Simulated assay, not measured.
Amino acid sequence: MSKSALSEHVSALTDAGVVGVSNSPADKRARRTALTDVGRESFDAYLRRLEAIVRAARG
């Protein structure tokens, strides 16, 4: 993935409130990304749904 494509994806996720972006204290050129509370809830819901699909597939 190119840097510009990654930047577009991170911007979209930030705009949606799923991730937060901050400056890295260790490296002025770097940025840190982390899930927000909304992002964590969404990811946890995704995992629960995925686990349900796997359980159903196993019978």
Rank of each mutant, 00 (worst) to 15 (best):
M1F: 10
S2T: 15
S2C: 06
K3I: 06
K3H: 10
K3F: 08
S4R: 13
S4T: 13
A5N: 13
A5P: 04
E8Y: 10
E8P: 04
H9S: 11
H9V: 15
H9I: 11
V10S: 03
L13Y: 03
L13F: 00
T14Y: 00
T14W: 05
D15W: 05
A16M: 09
G17Q: 01
G17C: 00
V18R: 02
V18Q: 01
V19D: 03
V21D: 04
S22R: 05
N23C: 02
N23E: 03
N23R: 01
S24N: 02
A26R: 14
A26Q: 11
D27Y: 07
D27V: 02
R29Y: 08
A30G: 03
A30D: 06
A30I: 05
A30V: 02
A30F: 03
R31N: 04
R32H: 10
R32I: 10
A34G: 02
L35M: 13
L35V: 13
D37W: 07
V38H: 11
G39P: 06
R40L: 14
R40H: 11
R40T: 12
R40N: 11
S42D: 09
S42K: 05
F43T: 08
D44G: 09
D44I: 04
D44M: 09
Y46W: 14
R48K: 15
R49C: 10
L50Q: 14
E51G: 07
E51L: 13
I53F: 12
I53N: 10
V54W: 09
V54K: 14
R55E: 13
R58E: 12
